[in-house]
Simulated scan of single mutants.
Amino acid sequence: MLGLATAGFALNFWAWALLSPLGPLFKEDLGLTAFQQALLVAVPVVVGALGRIPVGALTDRFGGRVMFPAVSAATIVPVLFIGLFGHTSLPALLVGGFFLGIGGTAFAVGVPLVNAWFPPRRRGMALGVFGAGMGGTAISALTTVPLVKAGNITTPFLITAAALALYAVLAAVVLRDAPGRVAPTGSALRRLATAARLPITWRASAIYALAFGGYVALSVYLPTYLRTGYALTQADAANRMAGFVLFAVVARPLGGWLSDRFGPDRVLVASLAAVGVAAAGQAFTPLLVPLGTITFLTMAVALGAASGATFALVARDAPAAHVGAVTGIVGAAGGLGGFVPPLLMGVFYEAFQSYGPGLALLALTAGAAVLGVRALAHHPRPV
């Protein structure tokens, strides 16, 4: 079940990230400004973020067995729309990207599904493995541009739609919820209101907005950053984005495993401190080889580990009956954390012809998060 859930997460994230590698191409073909290009790649992020709130509550009610095939099948529609019709204008791309955000909600389906299958002492590692499905963005980064060159603009969208269709059928037949799962009573709104009153919900949301939001923001904006800041080719920038994603993907289960051994609070402090140091160094736009590469890969590992540790924190502190609702809210915070930075980066570059202010702001935010995690590390947890 863990493997099947991780595969579904990866496939949906592959679809969710299809627009990012093509951002430079759309910018040239449609004459987009830096802000319009940033908006194009950010729209699926914010919709996928907000959509996790109702999807998490629905997963508590109906289970992952129902919700994973449903989300995967629904994501096929915007994938085909963009590939066949919506790539010819900015308004159509924004509409398609809005509904493409459905793919990003798969995260809120998988966390409660996986959480229920494992005992508390192993949930950090299990959720970290599931979280590695965010590597679907690496699949997109590595394959989208080559597939366009090998065929045409529709090719990657058709292939992704076919993969989602196969997975939806497989999940409907094979996927199972954990034995003994009891569907919660009451309305979804009431369960969300209960989850919103839990301290762990907002603590984890703030951390995840930085950890996963930072990962999403950097991964989707990295091709633009590298092409503008370092004059790389589109293919080279996409490949380097894939490397960033792969490092973060490997680090996420590592963060969960370390959290099982040493506690999520310690892992978060170390990871967020590393993000702050690396972002501060990159704010000066050092030479890409070796310093720029080192800073970005350090951020990738640290953000991936922090993302894994965040849901080890959720697994430890959230009541079992509300894991889906808490996950939806926390996941939404992470996605929203990825929505704002690309827009800020575009604004900063247009204003200062430099990405330095945006990276300096990331460094300051990471430093503040370290202080917050340390202050709350020994805060009494509700029974």
Rank of each mutant, 00 (worst) to 15 (best):
A172N: 07
L364I: 14
A49D: 03
V55A: 07
V301G: 10
A108W: 02
T285I: 10
A168F: 01
P264S: 12
P264E: 00
G214D: 03
P357V: 05
L336D: 08
A315L: 10
L268Q: 06
W117L: 06
V55M: 09
V47W: 04
M125N: 05
R176M: 04
A168Y: 01
A73F: 00
G229V: 06
V314I: 15
G328D: 03
D29C: 04
V326Q: 04
V43M: 07
A360N: 11
P341F: 09
A126G: 03
A242H: 07
L170I: 07
A248L: 09
L222T: 12
F85P: 12
F118A: 11
V314Q: 14
L222K: 08
A195Y: 10
G151D: 11
I153C: 03
P342D: 06
T137R: 00
L142S: 12
L210G: 07
L127F: 02
F311H: 13
F13R: 03
N239R: 15
P24A: 01
I329D: 11
L192T: 06
A368P: 11
E350C: 12
G151I: 03
S89N: 12
W14V: 07
G96C: 10
A274D: 04
G304P: 08
P69N: 09
T224G: 12
V173C: 07
N115L: 08
V330R: 13
D265H: 09
A283V: 12
L80E: 06
V301N: 06
V43R: 09
G229A: 08
A333L: 03
T155S: 11
P119W: 02
G334F: 00
L93V: 13
A168L: 02
A375I: 01
Y225Q: 11
T33W: 11
L222M: 14
A369W: 00
T293Y: 13
L303T: 05
V129R: 04
P146V: 11
A34F: 13
F348K: 08
V269G: 10
V289Y: 12
N12R: 03
I102Q: 00
A235E: 14
L19C: 09
G328N: 01
L39S: 14
T224M: 10
V326E: 07
L11R: 03
F118R: 09
W14G: 12
A141G: 10
G31R: 08
L80W: 06
A273R: 10
S20T: 15
G263C: 04
L58M: 13
A183P: 10
G48R: 01
A332V: 08
L19I: 14
V46G: 04
A300G: 11
A73C: 09
A73D: 05
G243L: 04
E28D: 14
R197A: 14
A126E: 01
G3N: 02
